[in-house]
C-alpha cells in the first residue's frame, strides 16, 4: 500500500489569530475586554455576584445580526 503524503497548509502561520476578537459586537470580544482589565476592588455580595453573572455570561449567541 502506498504511503500518504501530509500536505502542509499555507495559512497555518498567518491565521492563528482570531479576527473576531477585535470586533465590538462579538460575545467573546466583550467578555475578553472585561476580563483583561485589572480586577477592581470588589465587595462580594449576592447582588454583585449576580450582576457579574449577567454581564459576563450573557447569551451564548447573537440574538440577531442586524449590524
Amino acid at each position: 500500500m502506498s504511503k500518504k503524503t501530509f500536505k502542509p497548509c499555507e495559512v497555518l502561520k498567518e491565521c492563528t489569530g482570531n479576527l473576531f476578537k477585535e470586533l465590538p459586537l462579538s460575545v467573546n470580544a466583550m467578555e475578553e475586554e472585561k476580563l483583561k482589565k485589572e480586577p477592581k476592588k470588589v465587595f462580594s455580595t449576592i447582588k454583585s455576584t449576580y450582576q457579574k453573572m449577567y454581564k459576563l455570561h450573557g447569551f451564548h449567541k447573537p440574538i440577531s445580526q442586524i449590524f
Binding site: V27, K61, F67
Partner: peptide
C-alpha cells in the same frame, strides 16, 4: 448579516 464578528465559538 453573516460576518466574522458574530462568530461565537462556545
Amino acid at each position: 448579516n453573516i460576518s466574522r464578528k458574530y462568530f461565537s465559538p462556545n
